[in-house]
Protein backbone atom coordinates (compact mmCIF):
# COMPACT_ATOMS: atom_id res chain seq x y z
CA UNK A 1 0.00 0.00 0.00
CA UNK A 2 2.75 2.37 0.99
CA UNK A 3 4.74 1.70 -2.14
CA UNK A 4 1.64 2.11 -4.25
CA UNK A 5 0.96 5.55 -2.80
CA UNK A 6 4.53 6.57 -3.26
CA UNK A 7 4.43 5.39 -6.87
CA UNK A 8 1.28 7.39 -7.45
CA UNK A 9 2.83 10.51 -6.06
CA UNK A 10 5.90 10.14 -8.19
CA UNK A 11 3.66 9.79 -11.21
CA UNK A 12 1.82 12.97 -10.24
CA UNK A 13 5.04 14.89 -9.82
CA UNK A 14 6.45 13.54 -13.03
CA UNK A 15 3.49 14.64 -15.13
CA UNK A 16 3.48 18.13 -16.56
CA UNK A 17 0.42 20.05 -15.31
CA UNK A 18 -1.53 20.44 -18.51
CA UNK A 19 -4.31 22.69 -19.66
CA UNK A 20 -6.94 20.28 -18.33
CA UNK A 21 -5.52 20.37 -14.79
CA UNK A 22 -5.44 24.13 -14.81
CA UNK A 23 -9.03 24.21 -16.02
CA UNK A 24 -10.15 21.81 -13.29
CA UNK A 25 -8.31 23.77 -10.60
CA UNK A 26 -9.95 26.92 -11.86
CA UNK A 27 -13.34 25.34 -12.02
CA UNK A 28 -13.01 23.90 -8.52
CA UNK A 29 -12.04 27.30 -7.22
CA UNK A 30 -14.96 28.96 -8.94
CA UNK A 31 -17.35 26.46 -7.35
CA UNK A 32 -15.76 26.63 -3.90
CA UNK A 33 -15.61 30.41 -3.77
CA UNK A 34 -18.26 31.39 -6.29
CA UNK A 35 -21.19 29.49 -4.82
CA UNK A 36 -20.84 30.78 -1.25
CA UNK A 37 -20.10 34.23 -2.63
CA UNK A 38 -23.30 34.18 -4.69
CA UNK A 39 -25.18 33.00 -1.61
CA UNK A 40 -23.61 35.80 0.44
CA UNK A 41 -24.66 38.43 -2.08
CA UNK A 42 -28.20 37.10 -2.47
CA UNK A 43 -28.69 36.57 1.27
CA UNK A 44 -27.43 40.04 2.11
CA UNK A 45 -29.10 42.01 -0.62
CA UNK A 46 -32.44 40.30 -1.32
CA UNK A 47 -34.39 41.78 1.61
CA UNK A 48 -33.15 45.26 0.73
CA UNK A 49 -33.63 44.93 -3.01
CA UNK A 50 -37.04 43.31 -2.67
CA UNK A 51 -38.17 46.18 -0.46
CA UNK A 52 -36.66 48.71 -2.85
CA UNK A 53 -38.38 47.16 -5.88
CA UNK A 54 -41.69 46.95 -4.07
CA UNK A 55 -41.50 50.61 -3.17
CA UNK A 56 -41.66 51.40 -6.90
CA UNK A 57 -44.54 49.02 -7.60
CA UNK A 58 -48.29 49.53 -7.41
CA UNK A 59 -50.04 47.98 -4.39
CA UNK A 60 -52.05 45.53 -6.46
CA UNK A 61 -49.02 44.49 -8.46
CA UNK A 62 -47.23 43.59 -5.25
CA UNK A 63 -50.14 41.54 -4.08
CA UNK A 64 -50.39 39.59 -7.32
CA UNK A 65 -46.68 38.82 -7.11
CA UNK A 66 -46.31 38.12 -10.85
CA UNK A 67 -43.15 39.97 -11.72
CA UNK A 68 -39.79 40.69 -10.20
CA UNK A 69 -39.29 44.14 -11.73
CA UNK A 70 -41.88 46.88 -11.26
CA UNK A 71 -44.11 47.13 -14.35
CA UNK A 72 -44.64 50.87 -14.13
CA UNK A 73 -41.98 52.17 -11.75
CA UNK A 74 -43.35 55.14 -9.85
CA UNK A 75 -42.30 57.30 -6.96
CA UNK A 76 -45.86 57.69 -5.69
CA UNK A 77 -45.16 55.70 -2.54
CA UNK A 78 -42.29 58.01 -1.65
CA UNK A 79 -44.42 61.11 -2.17
CA UNK A 80 -47.03 59.55 0.09
CA UNK A 81 -44.47 58.92 2.81
CA UNK A 82 -42.93 62.37 2.54
CA UNK A 83 -46.39 63.92 2.66
CA UNK A 84 -47.33 61.86 5.68
CA UNK A 85 -48.42 63.77 8.75
CA UNK A 86 -45.47 63.66 11.13
CA UNK A 87 -42.83 62.16 8.83
CA UNK A 88 -40.80 65.36 8.85
CA UNK A 89 -41.00 65.54 12.63
CA UNK A 90 -39.90 61.91 13.01
CA UNK A 91 -36.98 62.43 10.67
CA UNK A 92 -36.05 65.56 12.62
CA UNK A 93 -36.30 63.66 15.92
CA UNK A 94 -34.09 60.87 14.61
CA UNK A 95 -31.46 63.25 13.31
CA UNK A 96 -31.47 65.42 16.43
CA UNK A 97 -31.22 62.53 18.86
CA UNK A 98 -28.58 60.77 16.76
CA UNK A 99 -26.41 63.88 16.49
CA UNK A 100 -26.54 64.52 20.24
CA UNK A 101 -26.03 60.83 21.00
CA UNK A 102 -22.93 60.83 18.80
CA UNK A 103 -21.19 64.07 19.70
CA UNK A 104 -21.60 63.91 23.47
CA UNK A 105 -20.48 60.27 23.85
CA UNK A 106 -17.53 60.94 21.53
CA UNK A 107 -16.31 63.83 23.66
CA UNK A 108 -16.80 61.94 26.92
CA UNK A 109 -15.17 58.83 25.48
CA UNK A 110 -12.17 60.57 23.97
CA UNK A 111 -11.36 62.09 27.35
CA UNK A 112 -11.96 58.88 29.29
CA UNK A 113 -10.22 56.68 26.74
CA UNK A 114 -7.16 58.92 26.83
CA UNK A 115 -6.95 58.50 30.60
CA UNK A 116 -7.37 54.73 30.34
CA UNK A 117 -4.84 54.43 27.54
CA UNK A 118 -2.09 56.58 29.04
CA UNK A 119 -2.36 57.01 32.79
CA UNK A 120 -1.36 54.34 35.26
CA UNK A 121 -3.75 55.24 38.04
CA UNK A 122 -4.97 53.01 40.85
CA UNK A 123 -8.29 51.25 40.23
CA UNK A 124 -8.09 51.90 36.49
CA UNK A 125 -8.94 48.28 35.74
CA UNK A 126 -11.99 48.39 37.96
CA UNK A 127 -13.13 51.66 36.42
CA UNK A 128 -12.60 50.37 32.90
CA UNK A 129 -14.61 47.30 33.81
CA UNK A 130 -17.45 49.52 35.02
CA UNK A 131 -17.34 51.16 31.61
CA UNK A 132 -17.40 47.90 29.73
CA UNK A 133 -19.73 45.63 31.67
CA UNK A 134 -22.79 47.48 30.33
CA UNK A 135 -21.80 46.20 26.89
CA UNK A 136 -23.00 42.73 27.84
CA UNK A 137 -26.23 43.89 29.46
CA UNK A 138 -29.13 43.37 27.05
CA UNK A 139 -30.54 46.81 26.60
CA UNK A 140 -34.09 45.62 26.15
CA UNK A 141 -34.00 44.19 29.66
CA UNK A 142 -33.51 47.70 31.06
CA UNK A 143 -36.68 49.19 29.62
CA UNK A 144 -38.85 48.14 32.56
CA UNK A 145 -36.85 49.86 35.33
CA UNK A 146 -35.97 52.78 33.03
CA UNK A 147 -39.59 53.42 32.29
CA UNK A 148 -40.28 53.38 36.00
CA UNK A 149 -37.38 55.74 36.78
CA UNK A 150 -38.14 58.20 34.01
CA UNK A 151 -41.82 58.29 34.93
CA UNK A 152 -40.83 59.23 38.47
CA UNK A 153 -38.53 61.93 37.11
CA UNK A 154 -41.27 63.21 34.79
CA UNK A 155 -39.02 62.82 31.76
CA UNK A 156 -41.25 60.59 29.66
CA UNK A 157 -41.92 62.10 26.23
CA UNK A 158 -38.98 64.50 26.34
CA UNK A 159 -35.86 64.70 24.23
CA UNK A 160 -33.86 64.62 27.43
CA UNK A 161 -34.89 61.08 28.24
CA UNK A 162 -33.69 59.97 24.81
CA UNK A 163 -30.44 61.93 25.05
CA UNK A 164 -29.61 60.50 28.46
CA UNK A 165 -30.35 56.88 27.69
CA UNK A 166 -28.78 56.95 24.22
CA UNK A 167 -25.63 58.63 25.50
CA UNK A 168 -25.36 56.14 28.35
CA UNK A 169 -25.46 53.24 25.94
CA UNK A 170 -23.08 54.81 23.42
CA UNK A 171 -20.35 55.82 25.88
CA UNK A 172 -19.17 52.28 26.73
CA UNK A 173 -19.04 51.36 23.04
CA UNK A 174 -17.06 54.43 22.00
CA UNK A 175 -14.72 54.22 24.99
CA UNK A 176 -13.96 50.59 24.28
CA UNK A 177 -13.06 51.33 20.66
CA UNK A 178 -11.03 54.44 21.43
CA UNK A 179 -8.98 52.92 24.26
CA UNK A 180 -7.69 50.37 21.77
CA UNK A 181 -6.86 52.97 19.15
CA UNK A 182 -5.22 55.35 21.63
CA UNK A 183 -3.12 52.57 23.10
CA UNK A 184 -1.90 51.76 19.61
CA UNK A 185 -0.31 55.20 19.28
CA UNK A 186 3.33 54.61 20.25
CA UNK A 187 4.16 56.11 23.61
CA UNK A 188 7.44 57.47 22.21
CA UNK A 189 5.56 59.71 19.81
CA UNK A 190 3.69 61.27 22.67
CA UNK A 191 6.87 61.63 24.71
CA UNK A 192 8.45 63.32 21.77
CA UNK A 193 5.51 65.73 21.64
CA UNK A 194 5.89 66.34 25.37
CA UNK A 195 9.52 67.31 24.87
CA UNK A 196 8.43 69.44 21.95
CA UNK A 197 6.33 71.40 24.41
CA UNK A 198 2.84 70.08 23.75
CA UNK A 199 0.57 69.95 26.79
CA UNK A 200 -2.12 67.30 27.13
CA UNK A 201 -4.69 69.18 25.08
CA UNK A 202 -2.18 69.85 22.29
CA UNK A 203 -1.01 66.25 22.31
CA UNK A 204 -4.60 65.09 21.90
CA UNK A 205 -5.39 67.70 19.29
CA UNK A 206 -2.23 67.48 17.15
CA UNK A 207 -0.87 64.00 17.77
CA UNK A 208 -3.25 61.44 19.26
CA UNK A 209 -6.47 62.29 17.45
CA UNK A 210 -4.93 62.64 13.98
CA UNK A 211 -3.09 59.34 14.35
CA UNK A 212 -6.09 57.54 15.88
CA UNK A 213 -8.49 59.20 13.45
CA UNK A 214 -9.75 55.91 11.93
CA UNK A 215 -10.79 54.91 15.42
CA UNK A 216 -12.61 58.17 16.01
CA UNK A 217 -14.43 57.76 12.69
CA UNK A 218 -15.33 54.17 13.53
CA UNK A 219 -16.59 55.12 16.96
CA UNK A 220 -18.61 57.97 15.44
CA UNK A 221 -20.22 55.73 12.82
CA UNK A 222 -21.11 53.11 15.41
CA UNK A 223 -22.56 55.77 17.72
CA UNK A 224 -24.62 57.07 14.82
CA UNK A 225 -25.78 53.53 14.15
CA UNK A 226 -26.83 53.00 17.76
CA UNK A 227 -28.68 56.29 17.89
CA UNK A 228 -30.37 55.96 14.53
CA UNK A 229 -31.50 52.36 15.03
CA UNK A 230 -32.32 52.45 18.74
CA UNK A 231 -35.79 51.08 19.36
CA UNK A 232 -36.27 49.57 22.82
CA UNK A 233 -35.63 52.81 24.70
CA UNK A 234 -37.82 54.98 22.53
CA UNK A 235 -40.59 52.39 22.72
CA UNK A 236 -40.42 52.39 26.51
CA UNK A 237 -39.90 56.07 27.12
CA UNK A 238 -41.97 57.86 24.50
CA UNK A 239 -45.69 57.64 23.96
CA UNK A 240 -46.53 60.81 22.05
CA UNK A 241 -46.77 60.51 18.29
CA UNK A 242 -44.73 63.66 17.77
CA UNK A 243 -41.81 62.36 19.85
CA UNK A 244 -41.28 59.17 17.85
CA UNK A 245 -38.08 58.42 16.02
CA UNK A 246 -38.09 56.71 12.63
CA UNK A 247 -37.76 53.07 13.79
CA UNK A 248 -40.63 53.59 16.22
CA UNK A 249 -42.70 55.32 13.56
CA UNK A 250 -42.00 52.45 11.19
CA UNK A 251 -43.09 49.98 13.82
CA UNK A 252 -46.31 51.89 14.46
CA UNK A 253 -47.01 52.22 10.75
CA UNK A 254 -48.76 48.89 10.40
CA UNK A 255 -51.23 49.88 13.11
CA UNK A 256 -51.87 53.38 11.84
CA UNK A 257 -52.49 52.43 8.22
CA UNK A 258 -55.93 51.03 7.66
CA UNK A 259 -55.17 49.28 4.40
CA UNK A 260 -51.88 47.45 4.03
CA UNK A 261 -50.26 49.59 1.36
CA UNK A 262 -47.11 47.59 0.83
CA UNK A 263 -45.53 50.11 -1.52
CA UNK A 264 -45.81 52.88 1.06
CA UNK A 265 -44.69 50.53 3.79
CA UNK A 266 -41.57 49.61 1.84
CA UNK A 267 -40.87 53.18 0.81
CA UNK A 268 -41.01 54.15 4.48
CA UNK A 269 -38.62 51.34 5.36
CA UNK A 270 -36.18 52.39 2.64
CA UNK A 271 -36.30 56.00 3.81
CA UNK A 272 -35.50 55.04 7.40
CA UNK A 273 -32.61 52.82 6.34
CA UNK A 274 -31.12 54.96 3.61
CA UNK A 275 -29.58 57.86 5.59
CA UNK A 276 -27.55 55.54 7.80
CA UNK A 277 -26.49 53.42 4.84
CA UNK A 278 -25.23 56.54 3.10
CA UNK A 279 -23.17 57.43 6.18
CA UNK A 280 -21.85 53.89 6.28
CA UNK A 281 -21.00 53.73 2.59
CA UNK A 282 -19.11 57.04 2.80
CA UNK A 283 -16.95 55.78 5.66
CA UNK A 284 -17.15 52.07 4.86
CA UNK A 285 -13.41 51.57 4.49
CA UNK A 286 -12.51 52.76 8.00
CA UNK A 287 -15.37 50.92 9.67
CA UNK A 288 -14.71 47.61 7.96
CA UNK A 289 -10.97 47.88 8.59
CA UNK A 290 -11.56 48.62 12.26
CA UNK A 291 -13.83 45.63 12.73
CA UNK A 292 -11.59 43.28 10.76
CA UNK A 293 -8.54 44.42 12.71
CA UNK A 294 -10.34 43.46 15.90
CA UNK A 295 -10.61 47.00 17.24
CA UNK A 296 -14.37 46.74 17.68
CA UNK A 297 -15.67 43.99 19.89
Amino acid sequence: MATLTRGGETAMIGREPGFFDALMARFGRVILIGLPLAFLVIWTMVPLIWALLASFKEPLEIYESRSFWPRNPSLDAYWTVLGMDGFGKWMFNSILVTVVATIVPLILSIIAAYAFARYLFPFRHVLLLLYLVPRIIPRVSLIVPLNDLMTDLGLINTYWVLYITYIASAVPLATWILVGFFKAVPREIEESATIDGANMWNRLRYVILPIAWPGVVTAAVLCIREGWNEFAFVLALVTETGMRTLPYALYMLKDSMGVQDYAVYNAFTILTVLPLLVVYLLLERRVVDSIVSGAVK
Binding site: E188, I189, S192, I211
Partner: peptide, 8 residues
Amino acid sequence: FQSYALYP
Protein backbone atom coordinates in the same frame (compact mmCIF):
# COMPACT_ATOMS: atom_id res chain seq x y z
CA PHE B 1 14.12 58.15 19.99
CA GLN B 2 14.91 54.60 19.02
CA SER B 3 11.74 54.40 16.92
CA TYR B 4 12.35 58.02 15.77
CA ALA B 5 8.82 58.80 17.04
CA LEU B 6 8.13 60.93 13.98
CA TYR B 7 4.57 62.19 13.77
CA PRO B 8 3.24 59.89 11.05
